[in-house]
Structures are given as structure tokens and as C-alpha cells.
Simulated assay, not measured.
Amino acid sequence: MNLALFPDVVVSGETIPSAAIAAEAQNHTAPRDKPGIAWRKAAQALTIRALLLQEANARGLKPDPLELAPGRFETEDEALIRALLDEALTIAPVTEDAVRTEWARDPDRYRSAPLWDVSHILCACDPRDEAERGLAEARATALLARLDGDAKGFAAAARESDCGSKASDGHLGQLGPGDTVPEFEAAVRTLPEGGISPAPVLSRHGWHIIRLNATAPGQVLPYDTVRPKIVQALEKAAWARASRDFVEGLAQGAQISGASLAPI
């Protein structure tokens, strides 16, 4: 990226170095052919950071870094920003009416995790080994072609699996979200009951042929169970609105060039 194409960012007399913006841009997504979007997002983030630090210093706040994890502490800038927001923002308590209104808007959003009854056939390989991966894929593809969607023949074919589940006709039992590797779960989620994966699925373990035997959808959870989650979400949303309004107020009283706080 040609840094000379981008103007200097200055916040009330404080210049943010282009190198700092370039480094921050690595933390922001943008289309591959539009790197300028990542730059503008980074410039915006550092502009907001500068506004907050300038305000913290103007109020005479002192950093008191917290330990975030054993041996890992906030930076002084992070501690200053936290102290400023703690002092400046007042968030009204979430009312019971607000929680019940949010719940009533769509109770179906709050469900227990689904369960999937799954069987599979594994053609094991090390996916990093191209030759081994190719041989295992060819074997899995041949097995799948032999099945030709015949769910009844799955149990017999599963006896050729490289997984210990072959002793139970490939049956893995009931699985929930997070119980398997992401590639496997993503494939399970696309299958209808009784369906077999249309193509072998690659994971760190090798190639899988997957059959979804049955699905138990999650049940709508009672209000008392989900209330804490709703309260937390409403508090988080209120804090986000308050902090956004606070930053906008700081920006109105500052002189900013080379960056915009408008949504990107």
C-alpha cells in the first residue's frame, strides 16, 4: 500500500503516524482489491483512541492497569480509556419491563442446543500429505458411490471405516454443537434426517462420509432461564450506545483531519 496516497491524520494537533495506522489496518477486514477500506477503519479506530486518551489526560486521570490474565496486564493507554469510560458513562439499570419486552419480541430465539444422531465412515489420512490425502479421498469417493444414497447399506459399509465406531456400524451417538471438528459439524447442519453427505468431508482426521440419522431440535427455554442472558445483552447494547454518543460528543469539540467517524 502506498502510504503517500493517504493524508496525515491529525486529532486536535496530535498527528497519528502513518506507520501506526498501517499496523492497525492489519486488524481490520476489507475486500482484497480495496485495501483503502482497512486503512480508513484503522484511521477511525486510532482517531477514537486519541480522542479518548486526550480526554482522559484532560481530566487528570491516572492509569492503573488491571491484570487480565496471569502475568498479562492492560497497557497504560487501555487502563486510561477504561478509567475514563467508567467515570464518564452512566448506564441506567435494565428494567424488568425491558427484559420482558425483549423476550416477548421473539421467544423462539432462546433455545437449548440441538442434538444430532450421527453415523460416519472415516477414511483416515494426514490432510497435509497430498498423496495420502488423495488416496483417502479416492477410497471415500468409491465408498460413497457404492452406497449411492442407500441409507440401509450404510451400516455394512461402515465396517470398512478407520474409526473405532465401525464396531457399532459407524454410529457416533448424539452430538451437539462443538462436539466435533468444525468441518464435520458444518456438514451435519446441512443434512436432512436420513441424509448422507453428497461428497466426502475433509477434516484433520481424514475424509468422512456422514449420515444424519435423526435431529432433536432445541427446545424454547423458559423466561427465567434466559433472563440473565437478556439482561447482559441489553446492558451491553446500552453501554455501546452510551460510549458511541460520548465519542461523538468528544469529536464535535475536537479538530480532526484525515479521518472520519462516519460508519464505513
Rank of each mutant, 00 (worst) to 15 (best):
68 L>E: 13
68 L>Y: 13
68 L>V: 15
69 A>L: 13
70 P>Y: 09
70 P>F: 15
71 G>T: 14
71 G>L: 09
73 F>E: 14
74 E>M: 07
74 E>D: 13
74 E>T: 14
74 E>G: 08
75 T>N: 06
76 E>H: 14
76 E>V: 09
76 E>G: 03
76 E>F: 09
78 E>Y: 15
79 A>F: 14
79 A>Q: 12
80 L>A: 07
80 L>T: 14
81 I>M: 09
81 I>K: 12
81 I>Q: 14
81 I>D: 05
82 R>C: 12
82 R>H: 06
83 A>H: 10
84 L>S: 14
85 L>K: 13
86 D>M: 11
86 D>T: 06
86 D>A: 15
87 E>A: 15
88 A>I: 07
88 A>Y: 09
89 L>E: 08
89 L>Y: 11
89 L>K: 04
92 A>D: 15
92 A>F: 03
94 V>Y: 02
94 V>E: 07
95 T>A: 12
95 T>E: 11
95 T>R: 12
96 E>P: 05
97 D>F: 12
97 D>S: 13
97 D>R: 05
98 A>M: 11
99 V>I: 14
99 V>C: 09
100 R>S: 10
101 T>M: 09
101 T>C: 09
102 E>G: 03
102 E>F: 11
103 W>V: 04
105 R>K: 13
106 D>G: 09
106 D>N: 12
106 D>R: 10
106 D>K: 10
107 P>H: 04
108 D>P: 00
109 R>N: 04
109 R>Y: 01
110 Y>A: 02
110 Y>T: 02
110 Y>P: 06
111 R>V: 07
111 R>A: 06
111 R>C: 01
111 R>N: 01
112 S>T: 12
112 S>W: 01
112 S>F: 07
112 S>P: 01
113 A>Y: 06
114 P>W: 00
117 D>T: 03
117 D>Q: 13
118 V>K: 07
118 V>M: 08
119 S>F: 05
119 S>C: 08
120 H>R: 05
122 L>I: 07
122 L>Y: 04
122 L>K: 05
123 C>L: 11
123 C>Y: 10
125 C>R: 06
125 C>E: 08
126 D>K: 06
126 D>I: 04
127 P>Q: 08
128 R>K: 13
129 D>S: 12
129 D>V: 11
129 D>A: 13
129 D>Y: 09
129 D>N: 12
130 E>R: 02
131 A>L: 05
131 A>Q: 08
131 A>F: 09
131 A>V: 06
132 E>D: 06
132 E>A: 11
134 G>Q: 08
134 G>Y: 00
134 G>K: 10
134 G>L: 05
135 L>W: 02
135 L>Y: 04
135 L>P: 00
136 A>L: 08
136 A>F: 03
136 A>T: 02
137 E>R: 06
137 E>L: 10
137 E>G: 00
138 A>K: 05
139 R>N: 03
139 R>T: 09
139 R>G: 03
139 R>H: 06
139 R>Y: 06
140 A>T: 04
140 A>K: 04
141 T>C: 00
141 T>W: 00
142 A>Y: 00
142 A>L: 09
142 A>R: 11
143 L>C: 01
144 L>K: 03
144 L>F: 03
145 A>P: 01
145 A>N: 05
147 L>K: 02
149 G>T: 10
149 G>F: 03
149 G>W: 01
150 D>R: 04
150 D>K: 05
150 D>T: 02
150 D>I: 02
150 D>S: 11
151 A>P: 03
152 K>M: 02
152 K>T: 07
152 K>A: 10
